[in-house]
Computed example of a mutant assay.
Amino acid sequence: MISGVRILGLVFGAFVLIYSFAMRRLGKLRRGELFLAQFLFVSVWLIAIYPPIVDILASMFQVEGRLFAIAILSSFVSFLLIIHLIIRLSTIRRDFGDLVQALALTSYGNDSVDGLDLANIAVVIPAYNEEGVIAEVLDRIPAQVLGMSTRSIVIIDGASDRTGDVVQSQGGLAVFHVVNRGQGDALRTGFEIACREGAEIVVTMDADGQHRPEEIERLILPIIERHADYVMGSRFLGHYSDRNSTRHAGILLYSSILSFFAKTKITDCTNGFRAIRASSLTRLELREPQFSAPELILEAVNKGLSIKEVPVSIMSRKLGNSKKPSGIAYPLRFGLAILKAWLRS
């Protein structure tokens, strides 16, 4: 006869399974949380249905008694729960990012002129302390590309220098984040403004002069011809002037991983030079504050956008220092961004 404790375990496990699938179906549970719930369900049911499995675990860990084995299993589950809490803490950071964006949009709305026309193509440029090079970048952006007018939107992401003043003196639209949030959040703010003002195509590029504005035509042509909704520039299909072997290998590795997750061939997953159809952009749910490229790609795939890569050039930085984390921090955090984007999908 099955004991009351075992019956309770079966009921609890069934509840966890049914509840987790229901929440996932409602969109309130992420993939990682679903995996955690399924692991808990399987563990509880195995112990309830076949208690001797605890003895097997005890022999594996070379401990005596079922209580010790259950304690080890409980510790492992606790570890997973701690990881889950860490992920949840990122939600709090995300809420703070939303507040920063809301302040930027409110300030933009108060300062903007009624009827401002951002033209057909909005060129969104996140900028953090780039006063030495941003003027040249803006000067090189064509006023028209393939007969479509352009307008630059520069998101000043908590800069401590005169980047914003330089942008405004060049006639560009400067939108200010009160604190530095990262490229992903800066892009989200730029996307919101571009879509709000009626842009048809949104181009993103870096503020450090490594992208060539003259190549915007390559990015938007497949969108105009309706061959793609999302066009990514690839240095490996085009020109790459700073071939650091370690970075080169890292980009290829992460591009392979993203290609596997996205089920589409990607050669340059870190390139920020891209173009997106504005009507498609509004369908993407973007949350990553800094390393946004993996999330953009996976979201585009999940939402059914057609993706294409075109050759572009990546030039060496002329002034200033890279804003990317130094050393091993960059590849680790970029890899984590890929994992988080996949788990959220």
Rank of each mutant, 00 (worst) to 15 (best):
M1Q: 08
I2P: 14
S3L: 13
V5W: 11
R6G: 02
V16Y: 00
L17V: 12
S20M: 04
F21C: 11
R25Y: 14
R25N: 01
L26E: 14
K28A: 03
L29K: 06
R30T: 09
F35D: 02
L36G: 02
L40D: 03
F41W: 10
V42K: 09
S43W: 08
A48G: 10
I49C: 00
P51D: 09
V54D: 01
V54S: 03
D55Y: 03
M60G: 07
Q62A: 13
E64S: 14
R66Y: 05
R66F: 02
I72V: 14
I72G: 00
S90L: 14
T91F: 14
R93L: 13
G97C: 13
G97V: 11
L99N: 02
A102E: 12
A104D: 15
N110W: 12
N110F: 15
D111E: 15
D111K: 15
D117V: 04
A119C: 05
A122R: 03
A122N: 03
I125D: 06
Y128R: 08
E131W: 04
I134V: 10
E136M: 07
P142C: 08
Q144I: 09
S149T: 11
S152C: 11
I153Q: 00
G158I: 07
A159Y: 06
D165M: 06
L173Y: 05
V175I: 13
F176A: 10
G184L: 04
F191H: 11
I193C: 09
E197S: 07
E200F: 01
V203R: 01
V203G: 02
D206Y: 10
G209L: 04
G209T: 01
Q210V: 13
P213Y: 04
E217C: 06
R218T: 07
L219H: 04
L221N: 08
L221A: 10
P222D: 00
I224G: 00
R226P: 02
D229V: 03
R235E: 06
R235C: 05
S241V: 01
G250Q: 13
I251N: 07
I257D: 06
S259L: 08
F260M: 05
K263E: 14
G272W: 02
F273I: 05
R277T: 00
S280R: 01
L281H: 04
R287A: 04
E288M: 14
F291M: 09
E295Y: 09
E299G: 00
A300V: 09
G304M: 09
I307K: 08
I314C: 07
M315T: 11
K318P: 11
G320S: 09
K323S: 15
I328R: 05
A329E: 10
L339Y: 15
L343F: 14
